[in-house]
Simulated scan of single mutants.
Amino acid sequence: MTFDILTLFPGMFTSPFAESILGKALDKGLIGLRAHNLRRWAEGRHQVTDDAPYGGGDGMIMKVEPVARALRDLRNAAPDSPVVLLTPQGKPFRQADAATLATKPGLIFVCGRYEGYDERIRTFVDVEYSLGDFVLTGGELAAMVMIDAIARLVPGVLGCEGSAAGDSFSDGLLEYPQYTRPAEFEGMRVPEVLLSGNHGEIARWRRLRQLERTVRRRPDLLEDAPLSAEERRLVNDMLLNPADETSG
């Protein structure tokens, strides 16, 4: 899978993707990453990519011409790669989106700067995403986050194929509590069921903790979560009888 990024600051993408899991994935050729400087498609000696907004107002607006030229060239080189626009006005990016996008042969990201986009730029993109109800100085950090979330779902990137399956949001719920050695630390013990070796009981404990943690921390996720009738009953009981979250 190849990620093409259209940006005014291609150097921002060098260090974050040279380390750890994604650095290894790049070295192995499991993913590719190309950061393209938008100024390559700007005209004039100064390669201007922004201008003042019609009608007045603060700040500068990203011009349509260089973005349109760049996207046409990038689409010609990667015709099966959807174009993603990073904007606070986009739909919220979710784990399900990451899973869907990870099946694509590639993606083209448009990273905005300045006060916003010329509205006509939107006619050249396939989907708009936001990371949340806040504003960044540009789309580069948002693109990095999305690429990380997507790339780790590409087969072979994590090494252990089951690692992503138990992540928070992978099944619509938050992840269950995790523990490792030592079994006791400053009076805090690992739940006995996790030491029992009984895999059936461990699976039931983990599922119950998932439900409990999601009820306490993110009840908004429960509406669309794929729950059995019994799990729905348990969730309703938890909602009606709130109690402190337990890890035991």
Rank of each mutant, 00 (worst) to 15 (best):
Q178G: 05
T180F: 03
T180Q: 02
R181Y: 06
R181A: 04
R181M: 02
P182M: 03
A183Q: 10
F185W: 10
F185E: 01
E186N: 07
G187C: 06
G187H: 01
G187R: 04
R189T: 15
V190A: 01
V190I: 10
P191R: 05
E192S: 12
V193S: 04
V193P: 01
L194D: 03
L194N: 02
L195E: 12
L195F: 15
L195G: 09
S196T: 13
G197F: 14
N198S: 10
N198M: 13
H199L: 13
H199C: 11
G200D: 13
E201D: 15
E201Y: 08
I202L: 08
I202D: 04
A203N: 12
R204A: 15
R204D: 14
R206D: 09
R206W: 04
R206F: 05
R206I: 14
R207G: 10
R207C: 12
R207W: 09
L208P: 03
L208W: 12
L208Y: 11
Q210N: 10
Q210F: 06
L211K: 03
L211W: 07
E212P: 08
E212K: 06
R213E: 11
T214K: 03
V215R: 07
V215T: 07
V215E: 12
R217E: 13
R217W: 15
R218L: 13
P219N: 12
P219R: 07
P219L: 14
D220H: 09
L221W: 10
L221I: 11
L221G: 09
L222I: 11
L222E: 10
D224L: 11
D224P: 00
A225V: 10
A225F: 11
P226V: 11
P226S: 10
P226G: 08
L227A: 07
L227T: 06
L227G: 05
S228A: 02
S228T: 11
S228W: 02
A229G: 03
A229C: 02
A229T: 14
E230V: 07
E230N: 05
E231V: 00
E231M: 02
E231N: 00
R232K: 04
R232W: 10
R232M: 08
R233Y: 01
R233H: 06
L234C: 05
L234P: 00
N236R: 05
D237K: 00
D237I: 12
L239K: 06
L240S: 11
L240H: 03
L240R: 04
L240E: 13
P242V: 09
P242I: 08
A243S: 11
A243Y: 00
D244N: 08
D244K: 05
D244A: 10
E245V: 08
T246Y: 06
T246D: 04
S247E: 07
S247H: 07
S247T: 12
S247Y: 06
